[in-house]
Design a protein around this nucleic acid. Sequence first.
DNA 1: CCTGGCACTCTGTGCATGCGAGTGCCAACA
DNA 2: TGTTGGCACTCGCATGCACAGAGTGCCAGG
Lengths: 339, 339
Amino acid sequence: MLSERRLEVLRAIVQDYVGTEEPVGSKALTERHKLGVSPATVRNDMAVLEEEGYIAQPHTSAGRIPTDKGYRLFVDKLAAVKPMSPPERRAIQSFLESAVDLDDVVTRTVRLLAQLTRQVAVVQYPSLTRSTVRHVELLSMAPARVMLVLITDTGRVEQRMIDCPAPFGEASLADLRARLNSRVAGRRFADVPQLVQDLAEAFEEPEDRSTVATVLSTLLETLVEETEERLMIGGTANLTRFGHDFPLTIRPVLEALEEQVVLLKLLGEAKDPAMRVRIGHENAHEGLNSTSVVSVGYGSGGEAVAKLGVVGPTRMDYPGTMGAVRAVARYVGQILAES
Amino acid sequence: MLSERRLEVLRAIVQDYVGTEEPVGSKALTERHKLGVSPATVRNDMAVLEEEGYIAQPHTSAGRIPTDKGYRLFVDKLAAVKPMSPPERRAIQSFLESAVDLDDVVTRTVRLLAQLTRQVAVVQYPSLTRSTVRHVELLSMAPARVMLVLITDTGRVEQRMIDCPAPFGEASLADLRARLNSRVAGRRFADVPQLVQDLAEAFEEPEDRSTVATVLSTLLETLVEETEERLMIGGTANLTRFGHDFPLTIRPVLEALEEQVVLLKLLGEAKDPAMRVRIGHENAHEGLNSTSVVSVGYGSGGEAVAKLGVVGPTRMDYPGTMGAVRAVARYVGQILAES
DNA sequence: CCTGGCACTCTGTGCATGCGAGTGCCAACA
DNA sequence: TGTTGGCACTCGCATGCACAGAGTGCCAGG
């Protein structure tokens, strides 16, 4: 175990490096921080820290910079999440409150996150599977064409066109609509395909209804699959603040940001709503090995319906970023619960 | 007026510079192109071209690069739009055909454009104002809460929640819905607010209906305003191919790309569907002074319902880019017409 | 009007040099 | 044992300089 002072030295190195973007040496450290010891002592400590893999030097005779492992220790043991100031909180809340619909909430959240953290923001749309159904609607568009509209308690609306095998009367459509709603309204979305399946089996009589119900069931499943993964990103201009060598690092990051699949993995397992920090090589995706991802779940109730987070250089202000991410997630949750 | 050969020299300079990204000199030019004259002659021509402002040299004793004015001449007089090859056309068509809904069409179009041109792609959603209404629906969500759902002939679906001043019976809702649809279905979207207004005035009887109709009218107007401007971008990773000095150029471009308003202006006046090329300083937005924008309208009928285009360095392959943009626009139009 | 030749101007590169920041190690000290 | 000051050493980086290469402008001759 590292001594108290060595941890203090590590903390100082991380703080200075995050601020200056330059390798930090022993002398500069003792000048900027009140460590109460001489540069020589710090040098010894640094040697140990380097031995243990927490810091490294880019070249011999240069200062030290934290490694991924060093940042990890910093995040786990040395840093406290920095809470937002009351004015900041008010600003967040009022900015989010003026959103008119779900799209707007997400758009605003992305902007807000990007501005607060000065990094790239990623916000996942509230998951269908973990929302409950508020309303299902069937609209007759043409004799054999029906549009299905789904509305969730998080305000999300999805629609799909259905081509029916046979024309469909307005009366039977109304009947189906009523049965459908009485079955699924208020239920969790994940259960809906099964509920609809049951509904289909309950029919014995007119064939067309049962076939439509079957079509519905499969349609709902694909709908869930397809729309599960929507997300929105913003603040990509902040990538230019990555660092001096950034032409090399920025490209794979931009590429990764265009891959929805990668991003979703990035935000982490959707189950747990806890804040999660992935540092450098802890990210599975290779292009993101020099970035860190701070993500957290948000939701209207106690449970997370989706995730949001930011992507930035490993050299980032972790306490501040974590504070901002957490605060935004909290307020988005509130807004969704109200709407 | 410039002589035939001088135009030929300009064309050669543009082609070489676009290919190599390096200033092109007289000797290299005569080697790579069969101009039939000696380097010295080319030098004289270059001097004239520079005098006229079509080309410039970054430093004394360096080769020449085209100016914005040079590219403009090239695009207007010297370049023919390069048509896509049949296999490319087939690929475009089949890729777009497998889209399941409007969102998917737009997403795919963006990807396609970005891949084909290797530049940043921008696609505007089909305009509400210039579409026609296929269907309007009113859904009762709660006693005094109604959801309005709009479906256009381009497959676009928009919805808004309405808080009614007083509870609203299912019967009167159905009545209103029927009247509404008979009035607006098949009409141009731009006319809808007025039509609904007329509908409201036609009512004399139950007050609630007329108030709801009024609410509807204003709601529709704001809906149009708010949703007019949706667009999607992609291929930002291609920004890294901008050039050596790109850390300076890329930032304002990324910033501009996040400003919807700027982008919409960028695509040009929505009225005319003709292909448009804006080169360097021809772009009003300062951050885009070193980029060119190729945009064109697309639509399901003969008329443009929206625009799409790409943003790239002024040093781009104009014939190829224009060919790709035009082809994609054409096929997107087809797909929309079919759906 | 075109062409070859020539002098001139830059940029980019390789190389030697000097400076400064930072390190590692050691001997001395509490 | 842990801390400290001192000292030699190592690099990275900036500077200065010479040189090659590409390109230009201009001029005289065909």
